[in-house]
Simulated assay, not measured.
Amino acid sequence: LKTFNGSGVLKTRRMGYDGKGQRVFRNMETAGFAGVCEAMGNVPLILESLVAFEREISVIAARGLDGSVAAYDPAENVHREGILRTSTLPAAIDPATATAAKDAAAKILSALDYVGVIGVEFFVLADGSLLANELAPRVHNSGHWTEAACVVSQFEQHIRAVTGLPLGSPARHFDCVMENLIGDDMLRVPALLNEPDLMLHLYGKAESRPGRKMGHFTRLIRPR
């Protein structure tokens, strides 16, 4: 923590997600660190430095059994309290950055000899360069928009990849915003059902709790 000037993100190495298993420190005196490891369960931890980034994006990509790769357009993600709230397409990045993100995802898939769908999250720095900050070896929350805005969703793409079928086109036909329904956001569902250009996906969870993802919706943005 002293090396990082009293700032960083402390994370559990396992079972951490959606803001769970994390503690953020900003300009903290190292003496205030006492007791934190015990409070986090005395499990193995990793401390990451804070990164000054402009925005976060993610690329959903797939690699088939034959080595072919298909990558969807980068989504711009907004998190609150460690939980993904929205993914917006297109991301507010220049074309060169979007191409670099797709190319990086393809290189990762090939280097790992990976088959299936993967989500790769990036920090976009002020100069447009990228830092990969997470690999999710599965279909990913930030790719749920593909259900509504693409002919072939990330879910179908994964099945195509692992069964040896040809990969489908990742082309996006609409701009869109995907938003997670978290906890009491479920109260918004009746109003959402009245929107014509909105795809709603509820997870069928019996109990709503603060911080619990209950579903998501994708709002299509039609050209004027």
Rank of each mutant, 00 (worst) to 15 (best):
A161R: 03
R138I: 05
Q157V: 10
E134M: 01
E156I: 09
L167Y: 12
E134K: 05
T146S: 09
T146V: 00
A132E: 03
I159C: 08
N133T: 02
V162G: 12
H158A: 01
Q154D: 10
P170T: 09
N133D: 05
C150I: 01
Q157A: 05
S142Q: 00
H173M: 04
E147G: 00
A171P: 03
P166M: 13
P170Q: 11
V139N: 07
A161S: 12
L167Q: 13
V162R: 11
H140W: 06
E147D: 05
A148Q: 01
G168Y: 14
L165K: 15
H144Y: 09
L165M: 15
R138G: 00
A161N: 12
H173E: 08
F155N: 11
N141I: 04
G164L: 14
E156Y: 02
H173A: 13
V151M: 12
R160W: 13
T146P: 04
A171G: 06
F174D: 05
A171Q: 12
G143Y: 04
L165E: 15
Q157K: 14
Q154M: 04
C150M: 13
H140F: 06
T163N: 13
L167G: 07
H158S: 01
A132Y: 02
F174Y: 15
V162S: 10
I159Q: 14
V152G: 00
F174R: 05
A148V: 08
I159M: 14
G168E: 11
V152L: 01
L165H: 15
R160V: 14
P170F: 13
P137Q: 07
V162Y: 11
H140A: 04
A161I: 12
G143C: 04
P170R: 12
H144G: 02
G143I: 10
Q157P: 12
F174G: 06
F155V: 11
W145G: 04
C150R: 10
A132M: 10
F174Q: 03
C150F: 12
L135C: 01
W145R: 06
E147Q: 01
N141Y: 04
E147W: 07
R138L: 05
H140M: 06
F174W: 13
V152T: 15
L167H: 12
P137R: 02
A171I: 10
G168L: 10
R160P: 15
E156G: 08
P170S: 12
H173R: 10
V162Q: 13
A149G: 01
L167T: 10
H144A: 07
A161M: 11
C150L: 08
W145I: 00
D175T: 02
W145F: 13
S153F: 05
